[in-house]
């Protein structure tokens, strides 16, 4: 079973991933439209991964969490866009804090 990758973002973002061979490219214009698109992608069994910039993901993170809880696939990956912008609060770090009950810094022992 081969699943497709979808990519939502501004023109630079989708140009780049399009060149890498991502076939499902969606230009982000308005938040509502993008959110609807994401819901649609979640309903599409052919999609395996959705890549979107942090800038969008951080604005709809409650909805994304909800969707992720319901279905394991497609995976959702937020990455920095061209400006390199990343949210201050790292979602994963937040998760560790909540589950382990302490701030954990993973360090490689030399």
């Amino acid at each position: 079973m081969s699943l497709k990758i979808a990519c939502i973002g501004d023109i630079d973002f989708i140009s780049g991933f399009g060149l890498a061979g991502v076939s499902q490219l969606y230009l982000h214009e308005r938040m509502e439209a993008t959110l609807a698109k994401i819901r649609e992608l979640f309903d599409n069994p052919e999609i395996g991964l959705i890549i979107l910039p942090h800038r969008i993901a951080s604005q709809i993170s409650p909805e994304l969490k909800e969707l992720r809880r319901k279905k394991p696939v497609p995976l959702v990956l937020a990455v920095p866009d061209k400006s390199g912008w990343m949210p201050e609060v790292d979602e994963l770090r937040e998760l560790i804090k909540r589950t382990v009950g302490a701030e954990v810094v993973v360090r490689r022992e030399e």
Binding site: M1, S2, S15, G21
Partner: peptide
Amino acid sequence: TLQAAREMKRDVTLRIQT
């Protein structure tokens, strides 16, 4: 550039197993 990206023939697909 976007045009070239859209014309890309290479279609990367994933195989997801659990």
